[in-house]
Deep mutational scan, measured.
Amino acid sequence: SSGGSSILDRAVIEHNLLSASKLYNNITFEELGALLEIPAAKAEKIASQMITEGRMNGFIDQIDGIVHFETR
């Protein structure tokens, strides 16, 4: 797709992000992006959206560029 990722790509990214949230206590956007094979800024945006929508527990430290995952 030309304008970003398809629905399937997005679903795969979100699935992998949720998997990462179970493996890590926290991770930088750079590391997360590398893990998900997407730019760091996109990793931040998707993580932020999932947390806001209540689909993933955690919070974002924008100063240090880190996602902190919280286990249920």
Score class of each variant (00 low, 15 high):
Lys42Gly: 07
Gln49Met: 07
Thr71Gly: 10
Gly33Asp: 00
Ala41Tyr: 11
Ala20Cys: 09
Leu8Tyr: 09
Ala11Tyr: 09
Ile63Asn: 10
Glu53Gly: 06
Gly33Cys: 04
Glu31Cys: 10
Met56Ser: 01
Gly65Trp: 03
Thr71Asp: 14
Ile7Tyr: 14
Lys45Met: 15
Asp64Cys: 15
Ala11Asp: 11
Gly54Cys: 06
Asn25Pro: 13
Ala43Trp: 05
Leu23Ile: 14
Ala11His: 13
Glu44Trp: 08
Leu8Lys: 13
Leu32Asn: 00
Leu18Cys: 10
Ser21Asp: 03
Ile63Val: 13
His68Ala: 04
Ala41Ser: 13
Lys42Glu: 15
Glu30Met: 08
Glu30Arg: 07
Met56Asp: 01
Ala20Arg: 03
Ser6His: 14
Ile60Gln: 01
Leu36Asp: 00
Thr52Gln: 14
Lys22Asn: 07
Leu18Asn: 05
Phe59Gln: 07
Gly58His: 02
Gly33Trp: 03
Arg10Trp: 14
Gln62Thr: 14
Val12Arg: 11
Asn25Ala: 12
Asp9Glu: 11
Ala43Met: 04
Ala43Lys: 00
Thr52Leu: 14
Ile13Pro: 01
Ala11Asn: 08
Tyr24Ala: 04
Ser5Ala: 13
Asp9Ala: 05
Glu30Lys: 09
Phe59Asn: 05
Lys45Arg: 10
Val12Lys: 11
Ile46Leu: 08
Gly58Gln: 01
Ala11Met: 13
Glu44Ile: 15
Glu44Met: 14
Ser19Tyr: 09
Lys45Pro: 02
Glu30His: 07
Ala47Gly: 02
Thr52Lys: 15
Thr28Asn: 05
Ile66Trp: 05
Lys42His: 15
Leu36Trp: 04
Ile66Phe: 06
Phe59Tyr: 14
Ala34Cys: 10
Pro39Cys: 06
Gly33Leu: 03
Phe29Ser: 03
Ile46Tyr: 08
Lys22Phe: 08
Glu31Ala: 12
Gln62Pro: 14
Ile66Cys: 07
Glu70Met: 07
Asp64Trp: 11
Ala43Cys: 07
Gln62Glu: 10
Ala20Gly: 03
Leu17Cys: 04
Leu18His: 06
Arg72Ser: 14
Ile13Glu: 04
Glu31Leu: 10
Tyr24His: 08
Ile7Phe: 12
Gly33Pro: 00
Met56Thr: 02
Ile63Ala: 13
Leu35Ala: 04
Gln49Cys: 07
Val67Pro: 03
Lys45Gly: 07
Asn26Ala: 13
Ala20Val: 15
Ile27Gly: 00
Ala40Glu: 04
Ile46Asp: 00
Ala11Cys: 12
Leu17Thr: 01
Thr71Ile: 08
Ser2Glu: 14
Ser2Thr: 14
Tyr24Ser: 04
Asp9His: 05
Thr28Ala: 04
Ser5Cys: 12
Glu30Trp: 07
Asn57Gly: 11
Gly54Trp: 01
Gly65Leu: 05
Leu17Ala: 02
Ser5Tyr: 01
Ile51Lys: 01
Leu17Gln: 02
Thr71Glu: 11
Asn16Ala: 13
Thr71Gln: 12
Val67Arg: 01
Glu31Arg: 07
Leu8Ser: 13
Val67Met: 09
Ile63Pro: 06
Ile51His: 01
His15Tyr: 09
Ser5Ile: 12
Ala40Thr: 07
Gly4Glu: 14
Glu37Asn: 15
Ser19Gln: 15
Glu30Thr: 09
Lys22Asp: 07
Ser5Gly: 13
Ala34Lys: 14
Gly65Arg: 10
Arg55Gly: 03
Gly3Gln: 13
Lys22Ala: 08
Gly58Leu: 02
Leu23Arg: 10
Ile13Trp: 06
Ser2Cys: 11
Ile51Asp: 01
Glu31Met: 08
Ile7Trp: 12
Asp9Met: 04
Lys22Thr: 08
Glu31Gln: 09
Gly3Val: 11
Ile51Met: 06
Tyr24Arg: 06
Asp61Lys: 05
Asn25Gly: 08
Met56Asn: 00
Ser1Arg: 10
Gly33Tyr: 01
Ala40His: 04
Ile38Asp: 00
Ile51Ser: 00
Ile63Thr: 10
Leu32Thr: 00
Ile38Arg: 00
Gly3Phe: 04
Gly54Pro: 00
Ser48Met: 11
Ser2Ile: 11
Ser5Phe: 03
Asn16Asp: 07
Val67Gln: 01
Glu70Asn: 10
Val67Cys: 03
Arg55Gln: 06
Gly3Ile: 10
Glu37Asp: 14
Gly3Cys: 14
Ile46Pro: 00
Asn26Leu: 11
Leu32Ser: 00
Glu53Asn: 07
Leu23Glu: 09
Glu37Pro: 01
Leu23Trp: 08
Ala40Val: 08
Leu23Ser: 08
Ser48Lys: 12
His15Asn: 14
Pro39Val: 05
Asn26Ile: 10
Val67Tyr: 03
Lys45Thr: 10
Asn25Met: 10
Thr52Val: 12
Leu23Asp: 07
Lys22Arg: 10
Ser1His: 11
Ala11Phe: 09
Ile27Cys: 07
Asn16Glu: 09
Gly54Met: 04
Glu44Asn: 07
Ala20Tyr: 15
Ala40Leu: 05
Pro39Phe: 04
Ala47Trp: 03
Thr52Pro: 00
Ala34His: 09
Asp61Phe: 06
Ile63Asp: 09
Gly65His: 09
Glu14Ser: 03
Ala40Arg: 05
Asn26Arg: 10
Gln49Ile: 08
Glu31Asp: 10
Met50Arg: 01
Gly65Ile: 02
Ile38Asn: 00
Ser48Val: 09
Arg10Ser: 09
His15Glu: 14
Ala40Ile: 06
Asn25Phe: 09
Arg72Gly: 13
Pro39Glu: 08
Glu31Val: 07
Glu31Ser: 07
Asn57Leu: 10
Gln49Ala: 09
Pro39Ser: 12
Thr52Glu: 14
Ser21Ile: 09
Ile63Phe: 08
Ile66Leu: 08
Gly54Arg: 06
Arg72Glu: 11
Ala41Thr: 09
Leu17Gly: 02
Arg72Pro: 14
Arg72Thr: 13
Gly4Leu: 06
Ser19Gly: 09
Leu18Pro: 02
Ile46Asn: 00
Glu53Leu: 06
His68Thr: 04
Gly58Val: 03
Arg10Gln: 14
Leu8Gly: 10
Ile60Asn: 01
Ile66Asp: 04
Asn57Ser: 13
Val12Ala: 12
Ser1Tyr: 00
Asp64Met: 15
Gly33Ser: 07
Glu70Ser: 06
Glu30Ala: 11
Ser6Phe: 04
Tyr24Asp: 03
Ile38Ser: 01
Gly33Asn: 01
Ile27Ser: 02
Lys45Ser: 12
Ser5Trp: 00
Gln49His: 06
Phe69Asp: 02
Glu70Arg: 08
Leu18Thr: 06
Ile38Pro: 00
His68Ser: 06
Ser19Asn: 14
Ala40Trp: 09
Gly3Ala: 11
Gly54Asn: 06
Ile63Tyr: 09
Ser6Lys: 12
Asn57Tyr: 08
Phe69Val: 03
Ser48Pro: 00
Ile27Thr: 03
Thr52Cys: 12
Leu17Lys: 01
Ile7Arg: 10
Arg55Pro: 01
Phe69Lys: 01
Glu37Cys: 12
Glu53Phe: 02
Ser2Tyr: 01
Arg55Cys: 05
Glu70Cys: 13
Ala40Gln: 05
Ala41Cys: 08
Glu53His: 06
Lys42Phe: 15
Leu36Cys: 05
Ser6Met: 10
Ser21Leu: 08
Glu30Val: 12
Ala20Glu: 04
Glu53Trp: 02
Gly54Glu: 05
Asn25Leu: 11
Ile51Asn: 01
Ala43Asn: 00
Arg55Val: 06
Leu18Gly: 03
Ala41Asp: 13
Asn26Met: 14
Ser2Asn: 12
Gly4His: 12
Leu35Val: 06
Val12Trp: 14
Gly4Ser: 12
Ile27Gln: 02
Asn16Val: 09
Glu31Pro: 00
Ala43Phe: 03
Gly58Ala: 11
Ile66Glu: 06
Ile63Gly: 08
Ser1Pro: 12
His15Trp: 06
Ile46Ser: 02
Phe29Gln: 00
Leu17Ile: 15
Leu35Ile: 09
Leu32Cys: 02
Met56Arg: 00
